[in-house]
Design a protein around this nucleic acid. Structure first.
Length: 316
DNA sequence: CATCAGGGCCCTG
DNA sequence: CAGGGCCCTGAT
């Protein structure tokens, strides 16, 4: 599908702002729906039922956003899209208070110096993130990539914009008439059931992302856990990446356990309580603090530093 | 070749 | 609340 219309908007995030560390997270594994180069990200987006191509460009101190579409977008459409982009990438997040707290910790201070102005955030809607969360479960990174690719190439739509061809996520309800076996044939395994059920719950309107954003943490958590296929590990990701709770840090999965031990104390495996004690120092910003340490590790790897203990764990 | 665990979760007893 | 089963894949 050719996206011939384009409109440019500009966004000025709160300073300091780091374009690359905000628009590219080296540990995010999704493929075929975006391309990143230094200072530029091309990303597809299914917004209000329209399939869009978005090009983000570093235009320091701001961001140039070009929206590619089939139909000429209305003013209201562009406004809501702009607000959504600001929300998803946390462009209005004021990091000052966090930085003041973090400077007391040597490790975190180093990470912040390297990534200053980086926002947490994620390009996906709640619906899309749930699909991602489910294919992460009980699988290595390589296998998760394969599952995502298979889904996107079978059910996504190819969009051509700005000389790039990328796949865009399907509409909610896509799996209403698809039986489980068809998904299983894409090597999704038992996760097929969860994907179909969640798709169904969304299309029946049983869950609404925008309503849920306005609820309190407890309600959000309860609502998410009630979705079929969502448990403590997935909800932990969702509350941070999609609902932007910087303070929630209750769950450490086995592989993260190993990596945090290395990352915080350069030890092979420490008791979870010891790791939690370190993390708890950062109070209402504890997950954000971990995000900075975590992303620093991935950026260092991206830039050529080799951590053998990391390579052993990721197996891409 | 077989066996096993992996960036969990649901269901059963 | 513990533990079995689940899909597939690469490691051993």
């Amino acid at each position: 599908m050719q996206l011939n219309k384009s409109k440019t908007i500009s966004i000025r995030p709160i300073s300091p702002f780091n374009f690359d560390a905000t628009f590219f997270k080296p540990d995010h594994f999704t493929t075929d729906d975006h391309i990143y180069e230094k200072g530029v990200r091309w990303q597809t987006m299914n917004w209000e039922g329209q399939m869009l191509g978005i090009k983000y460009e570093d235009a320091s101190p701001g961001i140039k956003v070009t929206v590619f579409s089939i139909q000429e977008p209305t003013f209201e459409f562009i406004e809501s899209l702009k607000n959504e982009i600001i929300y998803r990438y946390n462009l209005n997040l004021d990091l000052d208070e966090f930085y003041k707290l973090a400077i007391k910790d040597k490790l975190l201070d180093i990470a912040i110096n390297e990534l200053i102005g980086m926002r947490p955030g994620h390009p996906s809607s709640l619906y899309e993130y749930l699909i991602i969360g489910i294919i992460l479960q009980n699988a290595s990174v390589r296998r998760s990539i394969q599952m995502f690719r298979n889904l996107l190439s079978n059910y996504g739509t190819e969009l051509e914009f700005d000389g790039k061809k990328l796949l865009c996520l399907w509409d909610i309800g896509r799996f209403s008439k698809i039986d489980e076996q068809e998904l299983r044939d894409l090597k999704i395994g038992y996760r097929a059931k969860s994907i179909i059920k969640i798709d169904q719950q969304f299309s029946q309107g049983l869950i609404n992302e925008f309503e849920l954003r306005g609820k309190d943490l407890i309600t959000q958590k309860k609502t998410l856990l009630a979705l079929y296929g969502v448990g403590p590990a997935t909800v932990w990701y969702l509350l941070f990446d999609v609902f932007h709770h910087w303070e929630v840090f209750e769950h450490i999965s086995p592989w993260e356990h190993k990596l945090y031990s290395r990352l915080f104390f350069n030890k092979e495996l420490l008791p979870v309580e010891k790791l939690m004690k370190y993390i708890n120092k950062f109070g209402k910003y504890k997950h954000l603090a971990v995000h900075y340490l975590w992303e620093k590790m991935w950026w260092d790897r991206h830039n050529g530093t080799t951590f053998d203990w990391l390579e052993k764990e990721i197996r891409i």
